[in-house]
Each structure stands twice: as structure tokens, then as C-alpha cells.
Design a protein around this nucleic acid. Structure first.
Lengths: 203, 203
DNA sequence: ACTCGCCCGTGACACTTGTCATGCCGGCGC
DNA sequence: GCGCCGGCATGACAAGTGTCACGGGCGAGT
């Protein structure tokens, strides 16, 4: 009986090593590669053709979400498990749309990781239970592309005038979009709006 | 020859388990306890009296920095290593003031963790080299306690009037403090000021 | 005793921000 | 073709924000 071959992508080297050590303790799993970002992961996928890819979301070079989408089209035999800190419905939705089969939070017990790998390898889906419930109850991203673009800049501390110059719009229009975003999100001002959008994974 | 006894405090269960697995691979180290927050860590310290405590900074109940300070006074035989994501000079400074002997970033290679544990156990100091250099060049926290308190709330999206009510000050005074903080940090507005302060580890 | 720093407050002013009404254009569905 | 929606824009007003000048009190250090 051959073991399940796993590739891990995670930008924090120490966590990457620790996760590898964790899975090394499982007799039916083999860590066949490690990657520090999305680009490295693609190279390793080509070379190793692993059964399962475990990836973080927020990484430099290429996020785990785009990596998941790439993997589905170019390496359909490899199942993807997202492993992240963020319990954001927006992230979960995007992960599933990108073809990920698993979505696991870093605050779950360590034993669940190996179990999740086995289950997606058997063709099952593994979604963090709490998050799954919340995602169903939670509304989807109400922001337009423009609103997102402008709200993001506002969240960085830029003024309406600065944003207007950056995106080639009039200052009044920028304030319009912000006003729209604020009311859609039920916030009191641009700061709170940015905070809410970030927290839901819409920014 | 007896092995070094290590206690790990980290709020993300999976990372906690993975770090334990990582250190379990070292023959001269023994993981004698695990804690999901500062309070649990104190209980484990009392029960186990480990040689070395590895702790994250941002944890619920009690941060790693206050945990480090408590450890120095109540369990002086235990050396503390801070293990965190954040390369913030302010955090490093506070960690050293709290008596920590090591400050390691989660993006260092996994092998450095065990090595750091051995070195602090021998009485050496272990500071992330890049961060040490940066910390020396970087100025220290210019904010007063009041300014920090108010700037933090402003960063959450609260208005001056709301903050005034929360901290029992007049609205004008709140705007005064914010104005002070903004100018100290060289920011253009409260949002940017909060961002800068957060990034430097002053909030 | 005196100064200095932090704390607390006021009032006034200029500027930024949030809202609303209103309008124009282009694409999409029916 | 018509309505609707998203994007783009303007002007005007109210509310919120940032700055400045000024005042008072308290505790620590010289």
C-alpha cells in the first residue's frame, strides 16, 4: 500500500518546517516537497505531481487562492487543502470557487490536518464546520470593483483628494463611492467600512 | 545527560501541535507542556517548571509580553523565547524589557528554533539578526499612554465624540490627543497615524 | 521653589468627509 | 425600444476632523 504524497506551501519558514514535521509523524503520508510561495509551489507541482497540496492563503508572489485555481486547471489530479488563519466567509467562498476541496483553520487541533489530507484524497470535501455554518448565513460581497479599489486606499489612510488623483476620478466621485460602500456595509465612516470589508475578506 | 524541558504557548492549535512535533524530533529536547494562552501557560509553568518557555506574542487572555514579565519574576529559572510573526522594533524592545532572552521570527528556518532553545538554555541571548539591526536604527515609541489609548480607538473607526464618551474626556481633548499623535508620527490623518503606530508595534 | 512633562480642558477656524439630489452615458435583459 | 444598473460626474450642505492658541492642575526631578 503506497502512501499519500503531500506538498506544502507556506511562507513562514518555521511554520512550514513544523507542519512538515507534524505530517512526517503519520506513516501513511509523505511530504514530497515544500514551497515558500505560490510560484515555487507551481514548480514543485510540475516536478512532483503530489496527491494533495496544502497551502496558506496570504503569501507573496502568488496567493493560495490563485494557486488553487491554477492547480485545478493544470494539475487536476492534485487535490487542494487551504490552511489559513482567517475565518473569513469571503475567503472560503473564493477558495471553493477556485476548486479547493478542503478549508481548514490554523486554530483547529493539529490532528485534523492529517485527517483532512486523507479525506480529500478519498474524494471527500473538508470544510471547517464553524466557518461553513457562518458562510451560509453570511451575505456575499456587495462591493463593486471600484468601491473595493477606493475603499482599500481609504483604509490605508489616503485622503479623498489623493485617491482621486491615483485612480483618475474627481474628488466628489471618490466620496460618492465611499459613501456607497459605507452604507452597504452599515458602517459609520470609511475607517469602519474598511475594517468590516477586510474582516469579511472582501478587500 | 538530561534533556532540556520546553513549554510552548501558542494560540493557534495547529501551529502549537506542529511546533511540538518539530521539537519532538530533537533528541536533546523534551516538550513538557503546551498552552493555548498566557493563563494556561502560567498554570503549566507552576506544574512543570520547564527550562525554557517558547511563547507567541499575540494571544487571548494574556499576551506573550506580559507572560514573559510574569515568568521572570515568578519563575526566574525558566528562560523565555519569544516566537512571533511580527518584526516590530517596539515588540522586540518590550520583550527584552520583560526579560525575554530570545526573540525569533516565524519566517526563520525551522532548524533555528531548536538551536535558539539550546542557546538560551546555555545562558546566551538569541535575537533575530535583521531585527536587531533595525531596532537599533529605529526610534522609540513617542506616544503617551493616553495618545495610544485614543489612537487605538480611532483606528477601529470610532468618531471623536464616541471616543470622548468611552474614555470620559471632552471631544476637544480627544481631537487634541489625536492631533498630537498625528504630528508625532508624521501622518496626514488619524487613519495613517494608526496604521504607522500599529506597524511599528506601538499600539 | 521652580521647571518640566503629562494630563485635561476650551474656543475658533479651516479643511475634509459623508450625504443627497441630480444629471449623462453605455451596456444588458426582455 | 425601454427600463435598469453601474460607472462617472457636479454642487451644496451638514457633520466630522485637524490645528492652533490658550488656560489650569498635578507630580517628579533640580
Amino acid at each position: 500500500m503506497s502512501s499519500i504524497r503531500v506538498l506544502i506551501a507556506e511562507d513562514q519558514a518555521m511554520i512550514l518546517g513544523a507542519l512538515a514535521a507534524l505530517l512526517a509523524g503519520e506513516p501513511d503520508l509523505t511530504v514530497c516537497g515544500r514551497a515558500a510561495n505560490g510560484r515555487e509551489a507551481l514548480r514543485a507541482l510540475t516536478a512532483e505531481r503530489p496527491d494533495v497540496l496544502i497551502t496558506d492563503i496570504e503569501m507573496p508572489e502568488m496567493t493560495g487562492l490563485t494557486l488553487a485555481a491554477e492547480t485545478r486547471t493544470r494539475f487536476p489530479a492534485t487535490q487542494v487543502v487551504i490552511l489559513t488563519t482567517f475565518a473569513r466567509p469571503g475567503y472560503l467562498r473564493r477558495a471553493l470557487e477556485a476548486g479547493a476541496k478542503g478549508y481548514l483553520l490554523k486554530d483547529r487541533p493539529a490532528a485534523e490536518l492529517a485527517e483532512a489530507v486523507r479525506r480529500v484524497h478519498r474524494g471527500e470535501r473538508v470544510i471547517d464546520p464553524e466557518l461553513a455554518a457562518e458562510a451560509w448565513a453570511s451575505e456575499r460581497d456587495p462591493l463593486t470593483e471600484r468601491e473595493r479599489q477606493i475603499l482599500w486606499r481609504a483604509g490605508e489612510g489616503r485622503s479623498s483628494a489623493e485617491i482621486a488623483a491615483e485612480v483618475h476620478l474627481s474628488e466628489g466621485t471618490v466620496r460618492n463611492y465611499l459613501s456607497e460602500a459605507i452604507s452597504k456595509l452599515g458602517a459609520a465612516n470609511r475607517i469602519e467600512a474598511a475594517r468590516i470589508a477586510r474582516q469579511k475578506g472582501w478587500l
